[in-house]
């Protein structure tokens, strides 16, 4: 090869060996890309805001026993012991369906398996998947109607407190409406804009909307969002999900649950910046 020709390297892809000067450049390019890959992977990992320590025990079915309450939203009250004063302690566990559904239709199926009377007159053992974060626990009835493992009629009703909501007072909350299933563990992150569509799907499927609001201590309070007489308003809040909002309404307590009763037409306001 003459000197001039050597300088005039030309690449043809189907010839097995590329000219030296060209393969050298390609190799150098690949090295640069390799460095870029390390940088990009590292910087993205550093740049993310972090992930909460919420848990969704996907694939791990647990059993929980207790009494099902249907208001304010279906939940299972689980006895956890007695304190030094002899007061019974409970954990309230929100029930939800498999996928993006609330628990109601599954509970109706379960009820049809019971001997005529209503589901909340039994102590039941349910199979499901636990979801938990920041003090709130949810139980997904993963197996649908087959989630009912055992049941017995409640004889001593005094053991189970009534769960009538008590009105605490008026309240204004600033925060975000989320679907609790994703927020408390199924997704990371389970809130804000990237998660909006999914939250809308979950809430329209019957999962009760939760309001997440920062309190004066800097921690978060969680409220189930309900209508003025405690009815579900899933459809009415859909448009506000995942947006910064201000809610005005009445605060109530029912067992471990905090509730906000409001008129969705006038009491929900988008926070403008």
């Amino acid at each position: 090869m003459s000197k001039e020709e050597e300088k005039d390297d030309f690449y043809v892809g189907y010839i097995d060996k590329a000219p030296k000067s060209i393969s050298k450049l390609s190799r150098r390019f690949v090295w640069h890309i390799t460095i870029l890959i390390v940088l990009v992977a590292g910087l993205i990992a550093i740049g993310q805001r972090g992930f909460v320590n919420s848990t969704f025990e996907f694939g791990n079915v647990s059993e929980l026993s207790g009494k099902i309450y249907l208001t304010p939203q279906p939940f299972l009250k689980v006895k956890t012991g007695k304190d030094i004063f002899g007061n019974p302690l409970y954990k309230d566990v929100l029930l939800i369906g498999y996928g993006k559904y609330g628990a109601m239709s599954t509970l109706e199926e379960i009820e049809s398996q019971l001997n005529e009377s209503e589901i909340d007159t039994y102590e039941v053992t349910l199979a499901g998947t636990l979801v938990y974060y920041d003090g709130v626990t949810l139980f997904e009835l993963t197996k649908g109607a087959k989630s009912l493992l055992d049941y017995k009629k409640i004889t001593r009703t005094s053991e189970w407190p009534s769960n009538k909501p008590n009105r605490i007072g008026n309240i204004t909350l600033e925060g975000q409406i989320v679907d609790p299933k994703c927020y408390f563990g199924v997704m990371k992150p389970g809130h804000s804009k990237p998660h909006r569509s999914c939250a809308i799907r979950c809430i329209s499927g019957g999962i009760p909307p939760f309001m997440v609001a920062k309190n004066e201590n800097g921690t978060f309070d969680y409220y189930i969002v309900l209508g003025e007489s405690g009815e579900a308003i899933n459809k009415e809040v859909l448009d506000y999900v995942a947006d910064p909002v201000k809610l005005t309404g009445s605060k109530l307590k029912a067992g471990e649950w905090s509730l906000i009763y409001l008129n969705p037409k006038i009491d929900i306001e988008r926070i403008k910046e």
Binding site: E174, Q176, S192, K214, N217, G218, T219, F220, P244, E273
Partner: peptide, 16 residues
């Protein structure tokens, strides 16, 4: 980008 955001983090920090 909304300035008002849920600033949850793995460690919830209380009081300034």
């Amino acid at each position: 980008i909304p300035k008002y955001q849920l600033q949850e983090s793995p460690s919830n920090t209380i009081n300034e």
